[in-house]
């Protein structure tokens, strides 16, 4: 596999990363890593457009209940609050993990906090799954009404993103086991952290617009 970028050794890559490269190499490395992170931002923003359109669809469907159950009957606000806390804490632990990775180069602490992030992600997903099952049990299946289709699509897309993030974390653990915290693994972790923080930002929109505005409608 290509563990070099454009013919340069992995030690050339690093944006505020713990490596032993001389300062001139570090500057060059920083520029390369910033480029990689910028590319990832382009992806995140295209993802933001997807979510925005799902939000727009949801907003146009708020009255399309077709006589089916509405947010008041289907949403459990306490569950949404727990999910919010789990995802927020996971965003924090993800930040801590990158901090230990970039400044201390400590494999142990980095992995510990990423494992906590993964566990919190799993807590979030199991709560969400529980919500979906409870909704379906009350007749709130996606085919019931336009509003339900839009809700399942929006919340489900976010849930799938979090699932992807969890799988990505597992893959990164395998990479750390094989390569250690080498500079390329570090930039991947940094992109994963951006992805994870971004998903928490999208969740702010979901709990505010779907859950909170839903139950007071």
């Amino acid at each position: 596999m290509a563990y070099t970028v454009e013919g340069k050794g992995p030690s050339h890559i690093g944006i505020r990363m713990s490596n032993d490269a001389p300062p001139s190499h570090k500057e060059e490395a920083r520029a390369q890593a910033e480029e990689a992170l910028f590319g990832f931002w382009v992806f995140l923003m295209s993802d933001l457009i997807i979510f925005s359109m799902l939000f727009a669809t949801y907003a146009t469907m708020t009255h399309a209940l077709a006589g089916g159950p509405g947010p008041k009957q289907l949403f459990d606000i306490h569950s949404a609050a727990l999910e919010t806390i789990a995802l927020l804490l996971s965003s924090f632990t993800c930040g801590l993990a990158t901090l230990y990775m970039r400044y201390d180069g400590s494999v142990k602490k980095t992995l510990l906090w990423f494992v906590v992030t993964l566990l919190l992600g799993a807590v979030f997903l199991s709560l969400e799954l529980h919500d979906f099952i409870a909704m379906a049990a009350k007749g709130g299946v996606p085919s019931r009404s336009g509003w339900l289709s839009a809700s399942w699509a929006l919340i489900g897309t976010h849930g799938l993103h979090v699932t992807t993030g969890c799988i990505w974390l597992l893959i990164m653990f395998a990479q750390v086991a094989k390569f250690g915290l080498d500079p390329l693994v570090q930039t991947r972790f940094m992109r994963l952290a951006l992805f994870w923080h971004f998903l928490d930002v999208v969740w702010i929109g979901i709990f505010s617009i779907v859950y909170l505005l839903g139950v007071i409608s």
């Binding site: 927020l88 930040g95 901090l99």
Partner: peptide
């Protein structure tokens, strides 16, 4: 080291602010 400490404080401040800003609308509802 200073940068690291600033960033750590940033994460802690972010967590506290985000918790408060989530708690307010949930409490209101």
């Amino acid at each position: 080291r200073r940068e690291r400490r600033q960033e750590l404080h940033g994460y802690i401040a972010g967590l506290c602010l985000a918790l408060i800003l989530s708690a307010i609308p949930f409490a209101a509802v």
